[in-house]
Amino acid sequence: MNINYTLFGQIIFFVAFVLFCMKYVWPPIKAAMTEREKKISDGLAAADRASKDLELAQKKAMDELREAKAQAAELIEQANKRANQIVDEAKETARQEGERLLTAAKSEIEQEKNRVKEELRAEVSAVAIAGAEKILAAEIDAGKHSELLDQLAAEI
C-alpha cells in the first residue's frame, strides 16, 4: 500500500465531480422528473374530471329529455282540454242562439196574434155594429149604444 499524493488528487477530483453533479446534473434531471410526475398526475386528474363531467352531462341530458317529454304531454293534454272547451262553448252558443231565435219567433207570433186579434176585434165590432144597424135600422142610435157596444167588443 503506497499512500502518496494520489490521495489528495483523488480528493480534489471527488470534490470537483460532486460539485459539478450538484450544480449541473442533479437539479435539471430532478426538475424534469418532478415536472413529468406532476404532468401525469394532472393528466389523470383531468381524465377523472372528464369522465365525471361526461356522467353529469349524460344525467343532465336524460333529465332534459324527460322534462321535454313531460312538457309535450302536458301541452297535448292542454290542447285536448281546450278543444273540448271550444266544442262545449260552441254547443252552448248554438243552444243559446236557438233559444233566442225561438223566443224571438214566439214573441213575433204572439205579436201577430195580438195584432190579428185587435184587427179581428175591430172588424167584429164593425160587423156587429153593421149587423145591429141592419137589424135595428134606425131604432138604434149608434151614439147612444156605442158604450154598450164597446163593452160587448171588449168582452169578445
Binding site: 477530483f13 453533479c21 446534473v25 413529468r36 404532468k39
Partner: peptide, 30 residues
C-alpha cells in the same frame, strides 16, 4: 509520488459520468 494511472482512469471515468449525465440533464424534458 503520484499514481498516474489511477488518477487518469479515475478522472476519465468521473468525466464520463459527468459528461453523460450532463448531456441528459441539458436535454432533460418532462
Amino acid at each position: 509520488a503520484f499514481h498516474v494511472d489511477s488518477l487518469a482512469w479515475s478522472f476519465g471515468l468521473g468525466l464520463i459520468f459527468c459528461l453523460l449525465f450532463r448531456a441528459v440533464a441539458k436535454s432533460a424534458s418532462s
